[in-house]
Design a protein around this nucleic acid. Structure first.
Lengths: 147, 147
DNA sequence: TAAACTAATTATAAAGATTATAATATAAGA
DNA sequence: TCTTATATTATAATCTTTATAATTAGTTTA
């Protein structure tokens, strides 16, 4: 099944006239199989073994390409670096204020919000993003840590 | 009215045992009066005239303090630096993909999403954030610019 | 299959945003 | 006013991301 998702993604790449290089394939494959919304650096470190000479710039370049095609969504956070999410099914994220854990959360997509926004502002809406913040069950047991 | 908001904010600061320095006061005042969701650097430049010796670290320190108390919300973006929003009435943001313009958008707060998230994940939810992306009316007239 | 063309990768370096550090200055309470 | 803890300043360091130029390697075409 993730085999299928990967093949589909590669098909999309080819259709966009983008070359399939081993590094690009590996970044995409890692993202498709990842459940953790990795940062660029995490991807870089994860592929270090397979591609000892790979440059960080390659990771960023490929993430940009994948984002432009729409295969990957970038999720910037306040504390540090962006995280990247393979944009398959529409979903939202719940983020722990204490430990930073990210949990996927399914909720009926808020089409209504988008259409209302379109009417009120005249924008041509492309998508929306929602995140819910709180303390996960683990962190509720421990006294609040100072950020 | 924004006078009141400022006084209330300062009251909150005092209650939290935080010192009211001229710089801190100025950062807070600028944020209360600002409609543009400024970046740290914009605040720094705006206050340069009044405080020629102010360090950029002071701006960041104060933004952190204000955020920890809950007076200010940080809105990290993918392209560059975070923006800061005086967290008064609950609202959402519509962001132009082309020019970056941010427009406030009022919508009934999505309490239902929060309570459902709480039930499903066991998180103790504190707040949520939603942004809507698209092209503003101005940018719709111009051919799509390559990011 | 080989040559050619174009895009991708690498190895830097640079830029930009944010944080850390140590010394000095200052707000606020006694 | 004095004292003390906190805030500010000036600077450097860190971290993330992007830019550049040279090299390498996909893909197309003959």
């Amino acid at each position: 099944m993730s085999e299928t998702r990967l093949s589909q993604a590669i098909h999309t790449l080819k259709e966009s006239g983008v070359r399939i290089t081993p590094q690009r394939h590996a970044v995409l494959e890692y993202l498709v199989n990842s459940m953790t919304h990795p940062t660029a650096d995490e991807i870089y470190k994860a592929l270090e073994g397979k591609f000892p000479n790979m440059s960080v710039a390659t990771v960023y370049n490929n993430l940009r390409v994948l984002r432009e095609i729409g295969l990957v969504r970038e999720l910037p956070y306040g504390d540090s670096s962006s995280r990247f999410d393979c944009n398959t099914t529409e979903h939202y994220h719940i983020i722990c204020n204490s430990c930073g854990k990210i949990v996927d959360f399914h909720y009926p997509t808020l089409d209504e919000v988008e259409s209302l926004a379109e009417q009120v502002t005249g924008f041509d809406i492309s998508h929306h993003r929602m995140e819910i913040y709180g303390r996960c069950e683990n962190c509720q047991d421990v006294p609040a840590a100072k950020h």
